[in-house]
Amino acid sequence: MATPNDTVALNDAVTPDDTAALDGERLEAAMGHVFGELGVGCTAPLIVLGDRLGLFRALAGAGPLTSAELAARTGLVERYVREWLRGVAVAGYLEHDPAADRFTLTGEYAAVLADDEAPTSLIGVFPGFQALWADLDRVEGFFRTGGGMGWGEHHPALGRAQERFTRPAYVHGLIAEWIPAVEGIVPKLEAGAAVADLGCGHGLSSILIAERWPRSTVTGFDPDDASIAHARAAAAEAGLDGRAVFEVADAAGFPGDGYDLITFTDSLHDMGDPVAAAAHARSALAEDGVVLVVEPLAADRFADDFANPYARIGYAISTLVCTPSSLAQTGAAALGAMAGEAKLREVLAAGGLTRVRRIAQESAPVNIVLEARP
């Protein structure tokens, strides 16, 4: 049996207090890096408050404002607004005029933080952090025991954030650039095509396709009941009259065939058996049908991802959400969000989709967009 003295000795051996042996400059740099990260983490809730309370929208285009003027514009308490302004300004999101004590949201930052319709909007990402923290204890358990959790098991803030922050990319990318880059598909969509959207989540991509090409019919499939219920309600609200319908189904066994276009919009890596999903998609295609795969930007070699501006976000979300999603399903392939183009091509080829072409690279700065055919 260990004695108290044994415990002290063990702890001393494991965590010696001997920083003198460390490189001073590198230690200072490490502390500076981590301290900076603490600042980023602490600022994120202020960004969410600025969004929820309409502070960014009130600042957009208003020019320099004092805290009192911004409080009057928003109907909020000045003392809170003053502290918020200072916190967001020292974080670099606002410009500050010390002589007049006025704060300005530049047009560039407004395009990122105050306008959901802008192609540069990123504000929708921040509310999702609530889900990442809320689900952290469960993910910690998976590290110890294995297993995982589906998208529908996460805090509801995750699904809402996913729908919101992907909208600009889907409107300005998927609809305007990526689908039109698929060889021969636009004339079919304009004439009336059958589309299957696999792993559709809240149905945003399906609804946008149906709205853009009203003669086509889109069926969205997702294994999560709550997501499909949300998608059906959203389609009804959009008045699509059956042109976008939704069914609970796994990508490896969804019903129907003769689809002119099958899409995996940021979903293939979440699936338990992506090869089976690709194979089933192949079997469900029309004679000249095509599969469109949209995945996060990742290098084929991990060492090259250090130069990838998206990699930090991608690996974090993959650890906390995407890998647990796959490991909760049959197959448990755990492809991960950062699989890279070579691995994606390997998966598609194993599913019988051997003619693969990367498209829309200029309009997809943080995505890999692939056109795949048998």
Rank of each mutant, 00 (worst) to 15 (best):
N5S: 15
D18I: 09
A30P: 01
G32M: 02
F35T: 11
L38R: 06
V40I: 13
C42W: 11
A44H: 11
L53Q: 13
R57D: 07
E83H: 14
L85C: 04
G92C: 08
E108G: 11
A111E: 08
I123H: 10
P127M: 06
G141F: 04
G150E: 12
A161I: 02
A161G: 07
T166F: 12
Y170R: 15
E183D: 13
P187I: 10
P187H: 08
D197F: 05
R212E: 15
T219W: 06
F221H: 12
D222M: 05
S227A: 15
R232A: 11
E237W: 10
E237M: 10
E237I: 11
A238M: 08
G239A: 10
V245N: 12
F246R: 09
L268I: 12
H269C: 05
M271L: 15
M271N: 08
G272S: 11
H280E: 04
A284F: 03
L285S: 09
L285T: 08
G289W: 05
A299Q: 10
A307I: 01
R312L: 14
R312S: 14
S318G: 12
S318T: 09
L320M: 10
T323H: 03
L327V: 07
A328H: 14
L344A: 10
L344V: 06
V347F: 09
R358T: 09
S363I: 00
L370T: 00
L370Y: 00
